[in-house]
Write a protein that binds this DNA or RNA. Structure first.
Lengths: 166, 166
DNA sequence: AGTGAAAGTACAGCTGA
DNA sequence: TCAGCTGTACTTTCACT
């Protein structure tokens, strides 16, 4: 699974579906310049091969009552692989934690969390996160306002790079 | 636009489409227990009202040649509204910056960035980000590995809360 | 290209303020 | 009574072979 296995039409399909994942197959086919049946086959095999992990509606968290978004920087006592995995497993089970990334440097993990309000985040923070085994330090930062939130990757950058290589 | 304006069926629709945004309308209608036409109308009005911001294919950044993911914590010299907006506008134009969130505390902004490789990120970092006007400090952390990356919000938490209130 | 299914439209009936 | 939502029937468009 690598970019080199994709032709320009595959990349156009990915770019179009990243921008609008609910586009019909005929619309997609028209945009990428092929007929519908082969276009559908391409989409299927892109899913199969894992280039497309899924399709999701982008819902407005605020409108749904999740008023609070928080980044939590977590430091652990032990960075042994077993302990790292154990912490990741906990994050996977906490619904308020939407993203968990292991980082280099002094911070071990960064977590992106959502919560209905500050008090429910606080109770998660003190009751679950900071009191979890192996957690040494947690620094939290409230999101005051979101300025940009684009999903996926910049396909224009990708195409520029491919041109340079060619 | 608030959660209180949505009935249980609307919330089921949102949950289903968050999980699988390319589901057909009849399948969706079957799952939420109504017939197809009103289901479609509900989806349309949820989009209209902004509860659904869009539909996106979730593409695998690594497979597409974006090997590097970085969090950048940015501090500014001036936090005047004009200067904050100016920085946000820059972020909006930088394709490698996928997310930009304004935070409380010592960090002013956190940026989630992607890049094809370390060297192209470095050239963005030194050539664009740290050299941008008003930027005082930038601390970057490489994502060693991703442990969780769920889109959207946890609907089970939402339903639990609504039960408690009722 | 052709078939079967889904999307989308128009209209009529039901339900609650 | 009236607004709002629902379901049935129908046409157009799409998915898939």
């Amino acid at each position: 699974m690598a970019i080199s296995k994709l032709d320009p039409i595959d990349r156009m399909i990915l770019a179009e579906l990243q921008a609008d994942g609910r586009m019909t197959n005929v619309e997609l086919a028209k945009r990428v310049g092929i007929s519908a049946p082969p276009c559908l086959r391409r989409v299927r095999s892109l899913e199969e091969a894992g280039y497309i992990r899924g399709f999701h509606a982008d819902v407005d968290a605020r409108a749904l009552g999740f008023e609070v978004q928080v980044f939590a920087m977590v430091g652990l006592h032990s960075q042994a692989e077993t302990d790292l995995s154990a912490f990741e497993a906990k994050c996977a089970e906490w619904p308020l934690v939407r993203e968990c990334h292991m980082l280099n440097g002094e911070i071990d993990f960064i977590l992106k969390c959502v919560a209905p309000d500050l008090s429910s985040f606080q109770s998660f923070l003190t009751g679950q996160l900071t009191s979890a085994e192996n957690v040494a330090s947690v620094k939290t930062s409230l999101v005051i306002r979101g300025a940009k939130d684009e999903p996926g990757v910049p396909f224009d950058v990708l195409e520029q790079r491919l041109e340079q290589i060619a």
